[in-house]
Write a protein that binds this DNA or RNA. Structure first.
Lengths: 248, 248
DNA sequence: CGTTTGGTTGAAATGTGTCAAACTTTGTGG
DNA sequence: CCACAAAGTTTGACACATTTCAACCAAACG
């Protein structure tokens, strides 16, 4: 956590550009952001509920999950984040964290002081809009997850999650040949979908038996995309991927 | 929907000021926003999933819910909104709506063109921050609801929802003497919490039997706040109410 | 190479859903 | 302002998706 690297923010820039078009100047502003990066082991908390961090971070490599603990120690994972995502961008304005964020895999993270982000927002309204839009897409994902957990049965919930993660991985170039690295355990899937790991296991077998996916050795392969979408009641609109933003 | 009223945005201003401190100039900018208002009957869609609205709205009076429809016509209500809230503020940047928004009660709404909001964001970074913060608090509520639906049992989910709505109503002056107007039906509670209306009914009776609340004739009265919080595993931090924002 | 972590299977317990009917309150048109 | 209709609430019996507990197996790891 002590090396300073001027180009480390490239993954964050790419991700932001999938969210909003940026001018050369604005791109440079992001690339010039003072970033401190750190390698973190798997299954470590990066930040904890109640923290008041003075910096945000983005993912250079690896996967994280955001979670809350409910009564009885039950854990709800509210979202997964991958390359380029900024899991706690919200902390720029919501001073006290209402969630914890942990690594799923070993991860390389880039840390940026909130002040630096706020300065950019003052200078470049378009960057401000981009950051806002990033958090809005996160919120859209939360809404869709709520719908999944509240209304869909277990196999459908799982199919839906797999569809989402696959598209998001694809968008950042983490998919080849219909397959992606899938480091999430069945327990974690359960924590994300409000299911026991036992039931996740049985439901996954259903999806496998229907020849929709193969999932083993931490690799997810889509065997039948249309079938998986149908099983998961999945429609990608909520990810707001190809959408052209309105203006400056 | 044809009267123009220069001071109609007052409830929105009050709400924004609970989110971020504003200067005199910024306050005036909000008050001078060109607002068109409209009275809408209960149980009407204000906007629908797939719409690309050119304006956002805030609630002058009444209550709305944001919902999604899943396979089989099952409805998930993802949030309720009340006085001063801007339920589709997100539409300023997420052009295509991924949710529908309907009135719960007859409501008076104020509509503002997105362009006007974007102009203010350019002029006043602090307002930009305030809008962003408003949507971030919405997202925090989504996260907490996910945790409720995913991890808590029915009576606890309901108690949690009641706590939240009570505090939010209190913050905008809609509570007196431990009671608030409660126009939400048991079916709607079920749609919000992923429960059948039958089970909502039985769980509400539990809360009543424990002398935590009284709920009848569309009035919710809190009989034992501490008990209700405990039953709902509720802690208000996620509402980010008294939190002082960091800076400009 | 033992130890840990994650995956799989079976059987029993249970929270919640579904269906159906009755009851109560609210709203409305005559 | 009544009478009726519509909407919301309550109750009972039964079905079932999912959880829990417990054991075993397989893969990853130091």
């Amino acid at each position: 956590m002590n090396v300073l690297n001027p180009s480390a923010s490239a993954p964050f820039l790419w991700r932001l550009q999938s969210v909003i078009k940026l001018s050369e100047v604005e791109q440079q502003a992001i690339l010039n952001l003072p970033v401190r990066y750190a390698d973190i082991k798997a299954d470590q908390d990066v930040v904890r509920e109640g923290d008041r961090p003075s910096r945000m971070f983005f993912i250079i490599n690896g996967m994280t999950c955001t979670y809350k603990i409910a009564a009885g120690g039950r854990r709800q994972i509210v979202t997964f984040h991958m390359q380029g995502d900024a899991p706690d961008l919200q902390s720029v304005h919501l001073t006290t964290l209402d969630v914890s964020i942990a690594t799923i895999t070993p991860a390389t993270l880039g840390f940026v002081e909130h002040e630096a982000i706020l300065d950019l927002c003052q200078l470049y309204p378009r960057l401000s809009a981009g950051f806002w839009r990033h958090t809005l897409i996160d919120a859209a994902i939360f809404r869709e997850w709520m719908t999944s957990i509240g209304q869909r049965q277990a196999p459908s919930r799982i199919a839906h999650l797999l569809c989402e993660l696959f598209l998001r991985a694809q968008a950042v170039g983490l998919v080849d040949d219909d397959a992606m690295a899938f480091p999430i355990t069945q327990i974690e899937i359960g924590d994300a979908l409000g299911l026991s790991s036992v039931h996740v296991n049985r439901s996954l077998q259903e999806l496998r038996n229907k020849k929709l996916i193969s999932l083993r050795d931490s690799e997810l392969r889509i065997l039948n995309w249309d079938g998986l979408q149908a099983a998961g009641d999945f429609s990608p609109n909520y990810l707001h991927m190809k959408e052209q933003e309105r203006r400056a």
